[in-house]
């Protein structure tokens, strides 16, 4: 799942923003023993996965820069650690950026959603992340999974109630 540089439509600046944004959304955690979404291997997967969706994702990346510039005076990737933490905190709060002026752009909002979706797709198929969730790092097929039968005696009260369909 590596990207080929010549196929990559993302500019260096866009890759920089994307990496910083992915790490802000899902940072590394020593407590859970997982990398952040800005891990190089995961970012390479994100770039490869996002490639066919570049036109949709690009406004989402630009949106981060627009908001960061309005709120902190610099593009997203250049935010200080404190400002990035503040950005994340405000993003988690409804109306967190009401104090700044920015133009609502549905394309940018949709782009951000697509970008986050791709970050999640790539992050949660990473071996290290799956193992931290006690999943085997493998596709479902061909081994499959076990599902317990469950308690079939739960049906008894339903049976006792009798027919409920309407005759026609």
């Amino acid at each position: 799942m590596t990207t080929i540089a010549s196929d990559n439509p993302f500019s260096a600046a866009e890759q920089h923003t994307l990496t910083a944004f992915a790490g802000a959304v899902i940072p590394a955690s020593a407590e859970y023993g997982v990398p952040g979404a800005d891990d190089a291997q995961i970012v390479a997967d994100i770039l490869a996965t996002a490639r066919p969706h570049y036109e949709a994702v690009r406004p989402g990346l630009g949106f981060q820069d627009t908001v960061a510039a309005a709120a902190y005076g610099v593009p997203f990737a250049e935010l200080s650690e404190a400002d990035r933490a503040d950005f994340v905190e405000r993003s988690n709060t409804e109306g967190g950026f009401d104090h700044i002026e920015w133009e609502f752009d549905p394309g940018a909002i949709a782009g951000q959603r697509t970008l986050i979706s791709i970050i999640l797709q790539c992050y949660y198929r990473d071996d290290r992340v799956m193992q931290s969730l006690e999943m085997e790092p493998r596709p479902p097929f061909p081994q499959g999974f076990e599902v317990e039968q469950g308690d079939w005696s739960l049906l008894e009260p339903v049976k006792q109630r009798g027919k409920i369909y309407r005759p026609a």
Partner: peptide, 22 residues
């Protein structure tokens, strides 16, 4: 699945960005 869980949680505002995510 793990991705759908994350998407459900994040897009419904139940999983935050940042350190609280995990």
């Amino acid at each position: 699945g793990p991705v759908a869980t994350a998407a459900t949680g994040m897009f419904s505002g139940r999983i935050p960005w940042g350190a609280g995510h995990h």
